[in-house]
Write a protein that binds this DNA or RNA. Structure first.
Length: 937
RNA sequence: GCCUUGGUGGCGGAAUUGGUAGACGCGCUGGAUUCAAAAUCCAGUGCUGGCAACAGCGUGUGGGUUCGAUUCCCACCCAAGGUACCA
């Protein structure tokens, strides 16, 4: 019988679907294990061989855990809101829901073909109202919450209102915007309702505020910081400018410290944790208040070096600050205004491009040093960012290189406060080793002592305090797009009013046109039925808006990261219509045990989702505050492009090794036209594209050889390899094993179809251990000790390697095993049966087939994982490499039971040893039992 | 610049706590089988010299520790990813 993978794979895939083989039990006495992939955005291009890499790895692990007796949750779904479907809708008018549905169908067909053990009964789609109902629900919960610093967690906003009624906000410890006004209880109670509502927006975790945003005119939408790469939009590469807009934001900054601390207890890659740490950007220092001379203003600066306070010779403000124009002197006003205008004109990209240029303008105003009372000139400069700290820095040129450069450039005095430091060429920014001088009460103190002392004094005099600053910005949550979750809010007197939880989901309306309206409102502005009737609790026509009982709904939608910030919880109880997840499902499944996805989500999805989880945890809605115990980043599979060289200005193509200095240009050709030895199929090429039909080819050794180049897989580089095609020629089992065999899962590695034959012939060899012609070779006779040893060595190695996620070495072990058993002509059931189960996670189809051939009536999925028997692995003698002065010379075998002294005595008598020693006595003999013998002469 | 990860044959990649570097696969060379092909099987394959036995050199570079270093320490070079006037 031949190994007919096409027939086998089809049959077992149908069987698994018909029998719900991989459905996770809701109630089970077994221990649970939750294996999760980052769910895909269903793009129109379908899958290429790079996409399933991670799914194969998790599938192997999920199957492995099932064999080990775990109740495994291994779900899959779609992050189905997103830009491409909307762009397609703009171009063609096809509703994004239809595009998305079609793409999902294609994805599903491709995924099914690879034999994944997903529990599809738990599938989620972020664009499905039954799912986004709960995304909206979480949003409303965030809107209804503030961050209480006393308890260090989110609390209902009603609690804050109580506090305001009793004591105002003078004493309250809650995270809020910097510009929040201060008020007493009496003042609060005297306020009108809309005034109170405005104040509460300064505290809510989901809030509406006028913010400086990254505006992308080409896409017509706002982008988050992590959606911008090198100053242009990540999607499409369009320019991005700054713009002030009223936007929904998420107060993720409130969770900065907990997001930082949480990293300590999760098993995630170090590089990824480091990325998140940098993104959060914690700095410890002090805020110091400087009064402005002749003005009733105070400037607060943040500094990480409060010890250098006596080295301050000027101050720099971000040009964007409102304060700047208030304090600028009459004679400098013109220059200041010109500078502000120039800064505003510059795009983000320009500003990043020349960080070297020093620019700034003196405001004509002076600050008063809190201790020396000296007048300090106030400058503005675009090296100070409005968005970080307070947008103002105290400049200490002797201790900070940028301040130093700025001072040199504008001839501002530099004073040295570091005893013995040389600041003639550059600032002295080293924190250790020197003591302060000319610093009043800090004289003679080192960095640590001085920081402590100065903060004490500042706090005692109420001129500043110890402060911690985070780089992490609050996340903009509004998008001016159609294809996203509607924000469940309507507007009354210009203020946002939440829908009631019972009124969810607020379903995305139909629109005629997916572009912004002519007035520049988001696409939802095109909807004719987009008003909220507060009495009937439903969406009604815009005509009925009366601002009494019917109000306009929010036109912005949520960003792409909304649904993905909590979807992993939904899989636990995907069909629930009464709760986002039931308590019982949460208490059983609890958290993701293994999460696998790309590192490109480090500062986006993987940070936002941790934030939402912590928020849900504060309300005891989830049992743990970190949702993924272990995370692995899979590396990309790169394409191996094929390049044919064409002689310049001709249609003559030259084989790789015949170029020799001739003028040629590289032309990429389809990789499927090139074989394992880089030989091009010329006839195929001529049929592929008409431009090659009349081309001529200069061969070498009767073949045309192409150049190879490793780069990202992409349609335009003709290096995309389609998994369907591989499944057709080699089968899904071969594809699965080959993708694992390519290299370590975390590493980026090139795809090369040529290498796949090795893995495919392994499966054929494995098959031939069971079948020959038309009969089953497997016998029930006891196996030879040698053969059992081969099997159990493999079981040991593979089990250890799967546990360590080293799947590539597993495949190698299988190959060694099958080669040995083939030469041993071993067909014993005792040896082969456990190997079928061992192989099942990697190549499930062939394993099912062979399992059945061995006479089993149930799926191999139900078989328990083989345990290796150490008795079979015991060796009585060991061959030692014998080295002289560390260099290996020959091998000698000794019983393993022999101790060091016995081996030492024997090796010195050895004939070969004598030859190498040439009669001299050795200086030293080193014997490491089980490992090596080294003789030092 | 800073942070993180990595650098091993023609290629993808192996190598437990320092102990035979190059497992396994691809490719290549030779052979068997075949009328022939496909398929399959066997042998060889780090580099240099040599018919050979063998010798020398070899894990980015230069040092160090050690009987012994791909592995540990120091300095440097290169690549990938992240980040960027963060006070």
């Amino acid at each position: 019988m031949k190994y007919n993978f096409l027939e086998i794979e089809k049959r077992w895939q149908d069987y698994w679907a018909a029998n719900n083989t991989y459905q996770a039990a809701t109630n089970s006495d077994k221990p649970k294990y939750y294996v999760l992939d980052m769910f895909p955005y269903p793009s129109g291009a379908g899958l290429h061989v790079g996409h399933p890499l991670g799914y194969i790895a998790t599938d192997i692990y999920a199957r492995f855990k099932r064999h080990q007796g775990y109740n495994v949750l291994h779900p899959q779904g779609y992050d189905s809101f997103g830009l491409p479907a909307e762009q397609y809708a703009i171009q063609t008018g096809q509703h994004p829901a239809i595009t998305t549905e079609n793409n999902i169908k294609r994805y599903r067909e491709q995924l099914d073909r690879m034999g994944f053990s997903f529990d599809w009964s738990r599938e989620v789609r972020t664009s499905d109202p039954s799912f986004y109902k709960w995304t909206q629900w979480i949003f409303l919960l965030l809107f209804d919450s503030y961050y209480c610093q006393n308890e260090d967690r989110a609390q209902p906003i009603s609690k804050l209102v109580k506090i305001f009624e009793n004591a105002g906000n003078l004493q309250v410890l809650a995270i809020c915007d910097a510009d929040t006004p201060k008020f007493s209880a009496d003042q609060w109670c005297a306020m009108k309702a809309d005034q109170q509502a405005k104040i509460l927006l300064h505290y809510r975790l989901a809030y509406l505020a006028e913010t400086e945003v990254n505006w992308c005119p080409a896409l017509g939408t706002v982008l988050a910081n992590d959606e911008i790469v090198n100053g242009v939009s990540e999607r499409g590469g369009h320019p991005v400018t700054k713009k002030k807009m009223k936007q929904w934001s998420m107060r993720i900054g409130a969770y900065a410290e907990r997001l930082l601390q949480g990293l300590e207890k999760i098993d995630w890659p170090e590089s990824l944790k480091e990325m998140q740490r940098n993104w959060i950007g914690k700095s410890v220092g002090a805020s110091v208040q400087f009064e402005v001379a002749d003005h009733d203003e105070t400037i607060t600066v943040f500094t990480t070096r409060p010890d250098t306070l006596f080295g301050v010779t000027f101050m720099t403000l971000a040009p964007e600050l409102d304060l700047v124009l208030k304090i600028a002197s009459t004679d400098q006003k013109e220059a200041v205004e010109a500078y502000i205008a120039a800064t505003a004109q510059r795009s983000e990209r320009d500003r990043m491009a020349d960080v070297k240029t020093i620019s700034g303008v003196f405001t004509g105003a002076y600050a008063i040093h809190p201790f020396t009372q000296q007048k300090i000139p106030i400058w503005i400069g675009d090296y100070v960012l409005a968005g970080y700290g307070t947008g103002a820095v105290m400049a200490v040129p002797c201790g900070d290189q940028r301040d130093y450069d700025f001072a040199k450039h504008f001839n501002i005095p530099i004073v040295n406060i570091f005893d013995g430091a040389d600041i003639s060429e550059a600032a002295f920014s080293d924190k250790s080793g020197v003591k302060l001088m000319d610093s009043d009460f800090l004289d003679g103190l080192d960095y640590k002592q001085a920081v402590k002392k100065v903060i004490e004094v500042l706090e005692a005099q109420n001129r500043g305090r110890g402060t911690i600053n985070y780089r992490l910005r609050d996340a903009i949550f509004s998008r001016q797009r159609y294809w996203g979750e509607p924000i469940p809010v309507y507007y009354k007197d210009g203020l946002p009013q939440p829908l009631a939880l019972e009124d969810l989901p607020l379903i995305l309306p139909e629109v005629e046109n997916y572009l912004p309206t002519s007035e520049g409102a988001p696409p939802l502005g095109n909807a004719t039925d987009w008003a909220w009737d507060t009495q009937q609790h439903k969406v009604v026509s815009n005509d009925q808006i009366d601002h009494q009982t019917v109000f306009p709904l929010e036109l912005n939608t949520m960003p792409g990261w909304a649904g993905s910030s909590w979807y992993f919880n939904r899989y636990m109880d995907a069909q629930n219509s009464d709760a986002f997840v039931s308590k019982s499902a949460l208490s059983y499944w609890s958290e993701v045990d293994l999460y696998l996805g790309g590192s490109e989500h480090a500062t986006g999805h993987l940070l936002y989702s941790r934030f939402w989880q912590k928020f849900l945890y504060d309300y005891e809605l989830v049992p743990v505050d970190e949702y993924a115990k272990k995370l692995i980043n899979q590396g990309m599979i790169l394409g191996t492009s094929a390049v044919a060289y064409r002689e310049h200005g001709t249609q003559n193509y030259i084989s790789k090794n015949k170029i020799e200095g001739r003028a040629v240009e590289p032309i990429r050709v389809d990789v499927s036209l090139v074989d394992a030895s880089d030989q091009l199929d010329i006839e195929g090429l001529k049929k592929w594209q008409p431009q090659f039909a009349s081309a001529t080819f200069e061969l070498e050794a009767n073949a045309f050889i192409v150049e190879r180049e490793v780069e990202k897989m992409s349609k335009s580089k003709y290096n995309v390899v389609n998994p369907d095609q591989i499944c057709e020629t080699y089968g899904a089992d071969t594809l699965r094993m080959y993708e694992m065999f390519l290299g370590p899962i975390e590493q980026a590695k090139p795809w090369n179809t040529a290498g796949i034959s090795g893995v495919h012939s392994f499966l054929k060899k494995f098959w031939r251990l069971f079948h020959a012609d038309n009969k089953l070779l497997v016998n029930d006779q006891p196996a030879a000790a040698e053969d059992l040893k081969i099997a159990h060595q493999t079981i040991k190695k593979v089990t250890e390697d799967i546990s360590a996620f080293s799947f590539n070495t597993c495949v190698s072990s299988f190959m060694i095993c099958v080669n040995q058993l083939t030469s041993a002509k071993c067909h014993s059931r005792e040896v082969l049966e456990p190997l079928v189960v061992l192989l099942a996670p990697f190549a499930p189809h062939i394993a099912e087939e062979l399992w059945q051939a061995l006479g089993h009536k149930t799926s191999v999925t139900q078989a328990s994982y083989p345990k290796y028997n150490p008795d079979y692995l015991v060796e009585s003698t060991k061959e030692y490499p014998v080295s002289f002065n560390g260099k290996m010379r020959f091998k000698a075998a000794f019983p393993l039971a022999m101790n060091q002294e016995q081996i030492t005595a024997l090796i010195l008598e050895n004939e070969q040893t004598q030859k190498y020693l040439e009669g001299k006595a050795p200086k030293k003999v080193i014997v490491v039992p089980g490992k090596i013998i080294n003789i030092v002469s």
